[in-house]
Design a protein around this nucleic acid. Structure first.
Length: 798
RNA sequence: GCCUGAGUGGCGAAAUUGGUAGACGCACAGGACUUAAAAUCCUGCGGGAGUCAUAUCCCGUGCCGGUUCAAGUCCGGCCUUAGGCACCA
């Protein structure tokens, strides 16, 4: 037997010493850029899920290299983020120390798997040499008017004195201390991502993302077509503009609703006669978190704004204005026209508060459920009698435009990107605020703005970043006038560093530019990007937005940075549930590598099932793959002196199958094809070196260590990683015979082995002569005979 | 509520896009080797009927219906389940 620990170590050292996987910028070879999402190096260490995607793309990388391509397959660390910060606060160390330790662990774990990353390009988003350029790019956004500061509500924990992300505030309580979260208004930096909504949508046409990935992006952008309609307010110069996708139902608008934060309330406070009640309601709405407002919205609440009335522009009806938190300030105009007869929410609200419900499309049961389908328009003035929704919408829009009451309008769900975090462990936003000059960018030569080297930082009382407490860091001089200035203390979100890291890999050690033009032109797009489904919406959108911006200001050559994007399924625990410490179903890849070796782990994870679907861990399945490798090892002891392939057709078929399967992520069937080949070899007492050579070459991308060792020991050739990929001859993938299937009325009644040169007539003749088939033909009338060449004959009888 | 997938043996899964359902692996059972066990090797393995054994036949890809010479695959309608989005006007 063999010692897999020794072998694996040996070849890992070999690859490292020979820089076997180093990508070169330039040269004659065709380039190919393969990317796996870089991990967040958490204290928990590597997950078997990482092993799955890294191995899968490693297999593609290794095959492409053997096919003669210049493959860029880099790895790095997405190391900013809250967990490192929490850990550091608790233990009074600088987060960079915790990150350093975690990276060390992660890297060692990955190296033990034998993934062919080009480690010479490694970096972490927390390296000042890297975040210097993240800051520099932020300043490009700023200088091009794409970054601005605005007041936004954030989730705020009064006990921890910190802002929380929506995820951290799930359920309306602080994840850490359980205190009820409140909404707090705070000035935040934002990037004008909504300006890019249409480009981000159409840009998808220039990508080859998997459909489910594209769909995720489309949904997130959330384009909707409708109109803005202006409602006058009675006895006032003010008016309310609403956004609606159904202007055709305007005659059915029996009231209006504005979001509790809507500015109209403040503007008309002198006219409003129940301001106390409204203020109370505003407070009530504010105390709810985003979560409660959406997820837990069981019953509608609201208050009528007394003292003012709106006028329905289409029929002059005076209608009440309400405020209710089912209308959001951040979508549309923050105000709606409510059509209770044809909208479920409006209906629910109208029912509760006894507001008139006027149907404008006939055919629906208004009493039971809101009806929004097609029907004939009624009670609708100019639209009466129309029975087509599109036509009605058009007619209404034309009328509104003519009367200057409304305009067509496209809306996007996509919002501007809130880019501020009140955190220590993130890239400082490189701006200073001077009393005289206002916001001033830190000059390029002073970048990076480094995080201070302190181990203690407490949150402030007022929701500022912990950096605000570090006076010697905050106080600085204005780059413009030299006077006193204060640094911006907000840091960037975790998504910042990961929005451009794939560009940096092209030229990771450049200290003059974020990436050189030559490197960008050489590597172009990421050819194949793999990541988790959980990142296909946000991370991918941020990265595309960032890149499109860089493209628009002439810094990168492609508008879309990624060509193909695929996502892997999760590896679940043996019980079919998501692995977690609390459930006690975590499989540690280190343990598996120790028990059966990296090759067996890799092979198993490729064999486990459809790559894009979730799969449950099975220790028995793992053993089966280990057994498979052991059998291949033993094959070396059964070599003969023959030349060529013992079973030529099967070998050529297998080369074809494995090559195609690795290109199309069908890793499980690639492994099974190799198992079939091995089973065939074992039927013969001995096999040739060529037989063994082709098997281990095809297996090498998946199980690189053992195959290299067998190659060295029995084949005596140069290492597989320096050899070329086996080639097949299409003509030799075809068998000389086939099994003819004979059906009667679609049911299999006989089989005959025949030569591939058999004609259709011969096939039919043989079918008719088959003894069992004859039994089903006697006494019946043959009405049709279908012959599929080299496959089957179906005799149709009556 | 809306949008995506997915449902195939005891289990993980295949099926070249309409043409032999269950490849490959696991588990299980029987056998060989062994004093014995482990490892290894051989055989069987969807359900049922039938036979000493073959042969052969019936049923079978979540459910109901349809198209077709032929349906796991296409069409219509359901059920279950996983994920994503969501008072988005």
């Amino acid at each position: 037997m063999y010692d897999f620990k020794e072998i694996e170590k040996k070849w890992q050292n070999y690859w490292q010493e020979h820089e076997s996987f180093k990508a070169i910028n330039g040269g004659d070879k065709e380039k190919y850029y393969i990317l796996v999402e870089f991990p967040y190096p958490s204290g928990a260490g590597l997950h078997v899920g990482h092993v799955r995607s890294y191995t899968a793309l490693d297999a593609v990388s290794r095959m492409k290299r053997m096919k003669g391509l210049n493959v860029l397959f880099p790895m790095g660390w997405d190391a900013f983020g809250a967990p490192a910060e929490q850990y550091a606060i608790k233990n009074h160390i600088h987060p960079k120390e915790a990150v350093k330790e975690n990276i060390k662990t992660f890297k060692a774990q990955i190296e033990r798997l034998g993934i062919s990353f080009d480690w010479s390009r490694e970096f972490a988003t927390t390296d000042p040499e890297y975040y210097k350029w993240t800051q520099w790019q932020f300043l490009q956004f700023y200088k091009h008017g794409m970054a601005y500061k605005a007041k936004k509500n954030i989730n705020w924990c009064p006990k921890c004195k910190t802002g929380l992300s929506n995820e951290d505030a799930a359920g309306g309580v602080c994840e850490r201390c359980g205190t009820k979260v409140v909404q707090k208004e705070k000035e935040q930096w934002l990037l004008r991502m909504s300006d890019y909504a249409e480009d981000l949508l159409t840009g998808l046409n220039d990508t080859k993302f998997a459909d489910r990935v594209k769909l995720g992006q489309i949904n997130w952008i959330g384009k909707s077509k409708g109109a803005e309609v202006k409602f006058a307010i009675k006895d006032s110069k003010e008016s309310l503009t609403v956004y609606t996708t159904r202007p055709d139902t305007l005659y059915g608008a029996t009231f209006m609703v504005v979001a509790p934060e809507h500015p109209i309330i403040k503007k008309l406070k002198d006219k409003i006669t129940n301001m106390d009640e409204i203020r109370e309601y505003q407070e009530f709405a504010k105390s709810k978190t985003e979560f409660e407002r959406t997820e837990l919205a069981k019953e509608k609440t609201g208050v009528r704004i007394a003292g003012i009335k709106a006028v329905n522009p289409i029929n002059g009806e005076e209608i009440d204005i309400w405020t209710a938190d089912y209308v959001m300030m951040n979508y549309g105009t923050g105000a709606i026209m409510a059509v209770p007869a044809h909208d479920g929410r409006d209906y629910e609200f109208a029912k509760k508060y006894g507001i008139a419900i006027i149907p404008v499309i006939s055919g629906g049961d208004v009493n039971k459920e809101a009806y929004t389908g097609d029907g004939v328009y009624i009670n609708s003035g100019i639209l009466n009698g129309i029975n087509n929704k599109e036509e009605a919408i058009h007619k209404m829009l034309d009328y509104l435009e003519e009367q200057k009451l409304g305009t067509p309008k496209v809306n996007y769900r996509l919002q501007d990107w809130i880019f501020s975090r009140q955190r220590f462990w993130g890239e400082p936003i490189p701006l200073v605020h001077c009393e005289k000059c206002g916001w001033v960018p830190v000059p390029d030569e002073d970048l990076p703005v480094k995080l201070p080297d302190v181990a203690n930082y407490e949150p402030t009382d007022d929701g500022e970043s912990p950096l605000a407490n570090i006076k010697e860091w905050v106080n600085t001089t204005c780059p413009k006038c030299g006077g006193h200035a204060r640094r911006e203390t907000d840091t960037m979100p975790n998504w910042a560093g990961s929005s451009w890291y794939f560009l940096r890999y092209m030229d990771p050690h450049n200290d003059k530019e974020f990436v050189s033009k030559e490197s960008l032109n050489y590597w172009g797009k990421v050819d194949w990007y793999n990541g988790g489904m959980e990142h296909t919406a946000r991370h991918l959108l941020y990265a595309r937005f960032w890149n499109q911006f860089l493209y628009n200001i002439g810094l990168v050559p492609n508008k879309e940075p990624i060509d193909v994007r695929v996502s892997h399924g999760m590896i679940l625990g043996p019980n079919g549930e998501k692995m977690s410490k609390s459930k006690g179903n975590v499989i540690n890849p280190d343990d598996i590598v120790n028990e059966v070796g990296a090759d067996a782990l890799r092979t198993y994870e490729m064999f486990i099932g459809d790559y894009e679907k979730d799969a449950s861990w099975s220790t028995n399945g793992l053993k089966g793959c280990k057994k498979f490798l052991d059998r291949i090892w033993r094959l070396g002891e059964h070599l003969n002196e023959n030349k060529g392939y013992t079973n030529e057709v099967l070998v050529h078929q297998t080369i074809k199958k494995v090559s195609n399967d690795l290109e199309t992520m069908k890793y499980n069937t690639a492994v099974s094809a190799l198992m079939i080949l091995l089973n065939d070899y074992e039927k013969h007492d001995t096999v040739s070196k060529d037989d063994l050579r082709v098997l281990i070459a095809l297996l090498n991308p998946i199980a690189p260590h053992i195959t290299e060792e067998i190659n060295e020991k029995y084949i005596l050739g140069k290492p597989l990683c320096e050899s070329s990929w086996p080639e097949y001859d299409e003509n030799k993938t075809v068998n000389s015979t086939f099994e003819l299937v004979i059906q009667v009325n679609g049911k299999v009644r006989g089989r005959e082995v025949m030569s591939m040169t058999t004609t259709k007539e011969q096939m039919e003749a043989v079918a008719m002569e088959n003894e069992n088939v004859k039994k089903f033909l006697t006494g019946k009338k043959i009405v049709n005979v279908v012959v599929i060449p080299n496959k089957l004959v179906n005799i149709v009888v009556k």
